[in-house]
Nucleic acid binder design. Structure first.
Length: 316
DNA sequence: CGACTTTGACCGGCGC
DNA sequence: GCGCCGGTCAAAGTCG
């Protein structure tokens, strides 16, 4: 592997074909309705979908809902729980709950996001006068001038279990952590990840009133793999998309020619997904030269699924 | 000088 | 109640 930074899609047969088979980590599971090639085809071979001629462009432009996409990726999408594309995944539920990117955070974020999700309409949580350390500082100010406001905020906040923003995680083979996805991000934190030598970085969309966040971490079992988790939906167009959409629209197939593709493509794909499901994390999309699909968020401990132990598909 | 990153501190949830 | 941990804050530093 070169140490030169490169975009994951450069290795993708969709975008280029520079990876050898030996470099490929096999996927965790086969999307039931797809062969890998089907997944890679521009029409996405959306078996069973209502939109027979839907292409990725449709996805980009938000005409496909998350349920449809879930089905497209072989995932079920219940309105009341996590996506569960496989029948025998209950074994992983517990680990999933414990996983920092998945279950455990569902609770955390569910409490965090009630304010954040509401922030999409305007002020972010930070702008409110009632949160964490900053709030402490604010509180000092608030206490002096606006104690009632502070109290109200506290009272309002407590009872509500926050609704989580939908989350989508990409598992991307890349040497660069912060993949270009067309949006501008500001890093606001970095934390060491338990059981991993690689830190997790926290980013927030720099666009005003856009509460989308993303977390980026490297899979410790496969350092060449970057896990990017997006949370929330952009309420604005991607600057990159604005630049690139026209060119993309001209192509009937995203996967036909490789020269103009940008690494942001797949990210935008999911950015555009309407968030009609209550599932907080739609799934993990594993991107590599041969395979591109969503890994269900309840599949299991993410660290465990990258790449080895669960790679093996049980032979009948 | 503004935008962005770094990093230590802090907060809240959760399990024990 | 305590400690752990993920997530966030915000001052200081860096960069262009």
């Amino acid at each position: 592997m070169s140490h030169e930074p490169h975009y994951p899609f450069e290795h993708d047969p969709l975008f280029g074909n520079s990876l050898r088979e030996s470099d490929i980590h096999l996927p965790l599971y086969d999307p039931p309705n797809y062969t890998y090639n089907q997944v890679m085809t521009p029409s996405v071979d959306l078996n069973g979908l209502d939109q027979p001629s839907m292409g990725f462009t449709d996805c980009f432009h938000g005409s496909v809902d998350s349920i449809t996409l879930s089905r497209a990726f072989g995932m079920s999408c219940s309105s009341s729980g996590p996506i569960s594309p496989m029948d025998d995944e209950s074994r992983n539920r517990q680990v999933a709950r414990d996983h920092p990117l998945m279950g455990a955070n569902e609770n955390d974020l569910s409490t965090q996001n009630s304010s954040e999700s509401s922030s999409s309409t305007g002020a972010t949580t930070e702008e409110n006068c009632g949160k964490t350390k900053k709030d402490d500082l604010h509180k000092k100010g608030c206490e002096v001038g606006d104690e009632n406001f502070k109290k109200e905020n506290k009272v309002k906040k407590k009872p509500e279990k926050r609704q989580r923003e939908p989350r989508v995680a990409f598992i991307t083979k890349s040497e660069i952590d912060n993949l270009e996805d067309g949006y501008r991000w500001r890093k606001y934190g970095q934390k060491a990840v338990k059981n991993s030598p690689y830190p997790r970085s926290y980013y927030r969309c720099t666009s005003q009133n856009c509460g989308v966040k993303k977390r980026v971490e490297r899979a410790y079992q496969d350092p060449s793999t970057v896990i990017t988790t997006y949370e929330g939906q952009h309420n604005h167009q991607s600057p990159g998309a604005l630049r690139n959409n026209a060119a993309r629209m001209l192509s009937t197939s995203f996967f036909g020619s490789t020269s103009t593709r940008s690494p942001s493509f797949a990210h935008e794909f999911l950015f555009q997904m309407p968030t009609t499901t209550s599932s907080n994390l739609l799934g993990y999309q594993y991107l590599n030269p041969q395979h591109q699909f969503l890994v269900p968020h309840d599949y299991g401990l993410l660290h465990d699924i990258i790449p080895s132990p669960l790679i093996h598909k049980e032979e009948p």
